[in-house]
Amino acid sequence: MKKTLYFIFTKSIGLYINALSFVFPEKATQLAYALFSEPRIGKLSIDKLPKVLQESENETFKHNDDHFQAYTWKGNENTILLVHGWESNASRWENIIPYLQKSGSTIIAIDGPGHGLSSGKEFNIPQYAAFIDIVVQKFKPQHLIGHSLGGKTCLYYQSVYQNTALKKMVILGSPSDFNIILNNYIALLSLNTTIHKGLESHYLTHFKLDLNLFSGQIFASKIKIKGFIAHDTDDTVVLFKEGKKIASNWNDSVFIETKGLGHSMHDDELYNKIFQFLFEAE
């Protein structure tokens, strides 16, 4: 019953946007983009922060007209930056933080645009990467860990910014090809060609992004630091082959195949492998 209602709901929205596109194509495209880029969950309240975030030191940073939240668990001079994915927030790292703390490292996690305690309603990777750069410039982390779209943002960040402070990067369940995500959204709502072309034009105009080149495997080919890529064969959100694409173009990387973890990638054995990659002598 729920699946039937969801199907009717999504197709009804798509029908409305398609109808609107015949009269007001720009307005229809703006609506389609807003629905595509606005997370439905993942926001936090300062009064009801998860316990793991209450145990951190909170700091707010500004970027243009927006602000974003960072959480720090203090340790030694070695610093790790954590970057969550779509419809999530910094608390998603609760399970891995104790493993990373065994190294004595300082750990920093941030809330992405429109997530957690960060401002805005729109999520986009270039803005998220700008958030990362602000934190990197201030704290000089040696290691970067990203999950899902946070992982793709990490790939985009390092390929564009080429920050020499970073030494190693961990990517978990990350998509490679942005066109796949966009096409899935268009198929879900059954949007017409006018909207499809309008969305592609929006990215090219506002972000100077050719979506055919907005690819994790292309970003990975430009990265010189060591990489650890893990993807689960049972991931139904981001298909396993996406992780393989990234690994195939990242020269100095290792690829870990997991099974039964789904998209969340929460697992003690995986955490131990990440720890070994980051901290044990090679």
Rank of each mutant, 00 (worst) to 15 (best):
Y99V: 05
P175T: 07
A129I: 09
K48I: 00
R40Q: 14
K2I: 11
E122M: 09
I171H: 05
C154L: 13
K222T: 02
A247N: 06
K273C: 01
I181A: 13
V237R: 02
F36Q: 05
F275D: 03
I17D: 04
T205N: 13
Y71Q: 10
G262N: 01
H63V: 03
V237H: 00
G227S: 02
D267L: 03
I171P: 09
L191C: 08
A129Q: 01
E59P: 02
H147W: 14
K43N: 13
W250S: 00
T60R: 13
C154G: 12
I274Q: 08
D234M: 04
I229R: 00
S221G: 08
T258I: 01
E242Y: 01
N124W: 02
Q137E: 15
H84R: 08
M265F: 08
N212I: 00
Q101W: 03
G173Q: 03
P126L: 09
N192T: 08
G260V: 04
I223G: 03
S118W: 06
H231M: 00
S45P: 04
L49P: 09
L35G: 13
F123C: 05
T10S: 05
I132V: 11
G173T: 06
V52R: 01
L182W: 06
L144W: 04
S221F: 02
I108D: 06
L209E: 14
L44F: 01
Y185G: 08
K43Y: 10
L211N: 03
G14L: 08
H196F: 07
N272D: 12
L82R: 08
V135R: 01
K48Y: 12
E280Y: 10
F61V: 09
E26H: 04
Y156S: 07
K244L: 13
D66K: 15
H84M: 13
Y157V: 12
E55P: 05
T60M: 14
K2H: 04
I218K: 11
V136C: 14
T10I: 14
G198E: 06
Y71I: 13
G112K: 02
I108T: 10
L15S: 10
S215T: 08
Q101K: 15
A165P: 00
I246L: 03
L35C: 05
K51S: 15
G243Q: 02
T106Q: 07
L117D: 10
Q69F: 08
A32T: 04
F68R: 11
T233E: 10
I181N: 04
Y99N: 09
W250Y: 09
Y271M: 01
E122H: 05
K11M: 05
W93Q: 03
I134Y: 04
S201N: 14
K197N: 15
I145Q: 08
I134A: 12
N78C: 14
H266Y: 05
A165D: 15
